[in-house]
Amino acid sequence: MNERSEPTTGAAQPLADGGRMDAATEAFVAHRNLLFTVAYEMLGSAADAEDVLQESWLRWVKVDVGQVSDQRAYLVRITTRQSLNRLRSMKRRKEAYVGPWLPEPLLTTPDVAEDVELAESLSMALMFVLESLSPTERAVFVLREVFDVSYEEIAAAVDKSPAAVRQIAHRARRHVEARRPREAVSPSQAQAVLESFQRALETRDLQGLLDVLAPEVVLVSDGGGVKKASPRPISGAGKVAHMIVSGLGKAGITLTGDSTVVNGGPALVLRLDGEFDGVLAIRVEGARITGLYYVRNPHKLTRLASETVLTLQ
Rank of each mutant, 00 (worst) to 15 (best):
S246A: 14
G247H: 12
G247C: 07
L248Q: 09
G249E: 12
K250P: 00
G252L: 02
G252Q: 08
G252V: 07
I253N: 06
T254N: 12
T254G: 02
L255H: 00
L255P: 01
L255E: 03
T256E: 14
T256K: 15
T256R: 15
T256H: 13
G257C: 12
G257F: 01
G257E: 06
D258N: 07
V261I: 14
V261M: 09
V261N: 02
V261Q: 06
V262A: 01
V262S: 04
V262Y: 00
N263G: 00
G264K: 07
G264T: 01
G264F: 04
G265A: 11
A267S: 09
A267E: 07
V269F: 10
L270A: 12
L270F: 08
L270D: 11
L272Q: 09
L272R: 13
L272S: 11
L272P: 00
L272M: 10
L272Y: 11
G274F: 12
G274K: 08
D277M: 00
G278P: 00
V279H: 05
V279F: 07
V279A: 03
V279G: 03
L280R: 04
A281S: 13
A281I: 03
A281H: 02
I282R: 06
I282H: 10
I282D: 05
I282T: 06
I282C: 10
R283K: 14
R283S: 15
R283C: 13
R283E: 15
R283Q: 15
R283T: 12
R283F: 11
V284S: 05
E285W: 12
E285A: 15
G286V: 08
G286F: 10
G286D: 05
G286N: 01
A287H: 14
A287S: 13
R288S: 12
R288C: 05
I289M: 09
I289Y: 05
T290Y: 06
T290K: 08
T290V: 14
G291P: 02
G291W: 08
G291K: 12
G291I: 13
L292V: 13
Y293R: 10
Y294D: 01
Y294S: 03
Y294G: 00
Y294V: 06
V295Y: 06
